[in-house]
Nucleic acid binder design. Sequence first.
DNA 1: CTTTATCCGGATAATATATATCCGATTAAG
DNA 2: CTTAATCGGATATATATTATCCGGATAAAG
Lengths: 162, 162
Amino acid sequence: MQIAKGVEWTTHICTVIALLPPGRGLAVDVLADFFEVPSAYLSKQMQLLRRAGVVESVRGKSGGYRLAKTPDDITLLDIVLAIEGPKPAFRCTEIRQNGPCGLKRTDCKRPCEIAAAFAEAERVYRDALKVKTLASIMQEAAVNAKPEHLNDIGNWVQQQLP
Amino acid sequence: MQIAKGVEWTTHICTVIALLPPGRGLAVDVLADFFEVPSAYLSKQMQLLRRAGVVESVRGKSGGYRLAKTPDDITLLDIVLAIEGPKPAFRCTEIRQNGPCGLKRTDCKRPCEIAAAFAEAERVYRDALKVKTLASIMQEAAVNAKPEHLNDIGNWVQQQLP
DNA sequence: CTTTATCCGGATAATATATATCCGATTAAG
DNA sequence: CTTAATCGGATATATATTATCCGGATAAAG
């Protein structure tokens, strides 16, 4: 039960492109260099974010990726669902319908109690990710970081703009 | 991000072997037939449960698996951790230390805010699974099931005992 | 218009993990 | 001792994750 690395990568990247001036974007290659992650694969992950409406892309020269919404409107759950897809982690295969004492399908209107318990746990998990916005993450990071480091990132972002 | 099928299988199986008379066990082959799951693979999963102290095995003739604790003392989290292992789903690879603006390791005493947010979400997930005991699951199932089905299972378990 | 930089999508491959099987070693019951 | 059953390791297969490459589309800049 592992979360794809793309979730970690793209979340960090969202905190960086949030610092861009309005209307500007950063290229995948540039972002890949910033965190030393493989650019071709990162490109795939960013496409997933774009399809989910988290970021938007500008094609052609001086194009790149930027946020599609304000950092307040992007949650960690948005990013996880974009990368991992919507399917729940627990897969109920209805084995209660199998074997010598298997239930008939018509007797299985209610969800299996085990599946329901896992669904409930996943619900609280998702709720916890839903209240963490990109803005709140960046706020926490700003409080904890050294001022010069925030400066470094701001300057670096500026320098990447054509 | 998927939970291993073994979690579903062994949880269901725990609700069955909970019905055994004290001191008796059921063989893997018998349990595999009950839910129509592959017995050799189920055997591996039951070994994981045994190492985690959820079930215990009796070797030799008329041996098999039985619960190692009362259904009240077994939680869904116990089973998940036994099968999936203890490692968290979100893997922080510390990419904040990478690239042109990477932090020095000495500046990374606090956990990364992103990793912390996922750790918190996993904490509430685990807490939700921790309050679901085998006993509570069986209680819910007993309330929802038709009485004759509970009877069928009880009778089947009796018949499997030598 | 041409060049250049960039995203897009599909194909492909490598690696890791999950799923599944088999068999010899070991242990308990009769 | 013989038989039945589990354990543990070795191994095989399937699926998911990670990763790369390339041709095509798009758009800016010269």
